[in-house]
Design a protein around this nucleic acid. Structure first.
Lengths: 240, 240
DNA sequence: CCGACTCAAAATGCATTCATTATTCAAACA
DNA sequence: TGTTTGAATAATGAATGCATTTTGAGTCGG
């Protein structure tokens, strides 16, 4: 085999994406997104066969991906019965949000220790951008930038383990937030909280940033919980 | 087929019934233990073939298990190059312990809210048992009961997500603690801290319990870090 | 003598196949 | 008529097989 041929696998006969990241990794991400966005409905079965056909892969890498998603809590694996998209129950989010809160708090604390001026500038820029979306009442744009802000803080914490654990939970939180729309009041409140987040981050006040991040998430929890109160009809199938 | 087995309603609830353990689950646990205990050395390759022979399984379930362990951070998967036992580096434990601390703190906080008198009694019993091991200088026994105490508190927190995240990290912490022996001073200190843990738990003082648990772990971190300082020659193989 | 190249052997990622288990649905029974 | 039985069907879990990549030894050339 000639050494130059090493980069030849990018355009296979199947037209698949380049194999830089292994197949099961790509699958994990793709299916995670399907679940978060709601294309795969909570409480339903994960259609193994269809997904195999959709992505033109065999069951082996797909099942590997499902194992990973099971750890993230997005699917439940039942021996000999297959994989089910986990439901968004009140118990579930009451479990997830406090843990996420603890991680966010730690994230803020560590970020204040390590963040550079340039990074703060970047967050400030994102913050301004988010305010614009708020003023324009563009919820999609708001969410997108919002997420970037939290990720920027997380990245400034300089802790890979924290990042991994955070991202593992983030999918479930995002999914919950995706279904539960904010009221205008909550939105205003959330934006005000972000104002404080920005302030404490610039002061590198770890304790206060930590506290406000935790509270910020608690308020988000309240939003989602309220939505669940209003939409109990979504429950019906077996949970597990 | 046995006709009587159709009345499956006994395992219908959401409680943790004995779900049949599939092969990859067993494997995950077995290999995790191999790594934690040190039978598989940090920095070395995971001998896929040998493990298949050892457990008399094919590569498929083994590889599924490795995916799970990779998330726990016990192994690193390198595309087309296989799985490697992750090393215990200073950066690694400096990452893991703070996150673990945050989770333990939350665990204590929630436990104080939900723990029953009977459960407190059980922890008290474990605590006494641990003190006996301390007096007998039985480190193995001490560690075993120690772990049970932390697990009892965790269980009292009534949070499945927290439990999952905690256990995911616990393996790495256990592994670190396994290699790094405590000095007598540290051991005494740890025992004293456990005395306080017991006190605050019985008072159901969440804030203080949370704080002491976090500090307890910080001290453990110091022990491990010191050990790493003294044993830098352990590094040599490839990190990732 | 040392480095680069070639080629073979081993290992990996994924697909396919096989055995076991669950599910379905029609027939038998009370 | 409603419930239960049991065989056909479908799906899952795991083993095997195949193509690609990596690794390493041996050879050639400088």
């Amino acid at each position: 085999m000639t050494p130059e041929d090493q980069t030849s696998s990018l355009s296979d006969g199947k037209g698949e994406v380049f194999r830089r990241r292994s197949l099961h990794e790509e699958l994990t991400e793709a299916i995670r997104e399907l679940i978060v966005v709601g294309d795969l409905l909570p409480g339903t079965r994960v259609p193994e066969k269809e997904l195999c056909a959709l992505y033109s892969v065999s069951r082996t890498p797909l099942r590997e991906a499902l194992k990973v998603l099971a750890i993230d809590g997005l699917v439940n694996l039942e021996p000999n019965r297959g994989a089910w998209v986990s439901k968004i129950t009140k118990e579930d989010i009451d479990d997830v949000f406090p843990v996420m809160g603890a991680l966010e708090a730690l994230s803020g604390e560590l970020a204040c220790k390590h963040i550079s001026d340039a990074e703060i500038g970047n967050v400030r820029r994102l913050h301004r951008e988010m305010l614009k979306y708020f003023e324009q009442r563009d919820l999609e744009g708001y969410f997108a930038v919002n997420q970037q802000i939290h990720e920027a803080i997380l990245s400034a914490a300089r802790n890979k383990t924290l990042t991994a654990q955070y991202n593992s939970l983030a999918a479930r939180v995002r999914r919950a937030r995706y279904v539960a729309n904010m009221t205008m009041d909550r939105w205003t409140q959330a934006t005000e909280e972000h104002e404080q987040i920005m302030t404490f981050l610039e002061r590198r006040d770890g304790a206060r940033l930590s506290a406000i991040l935790k509270k910020h998430l608690e308020n988000k929890l309240e939003t989602v919980r309220q939505w669940l109160d209003d939409n109990e009809e979504a429950d019906g199938a077996k949970a597990r």
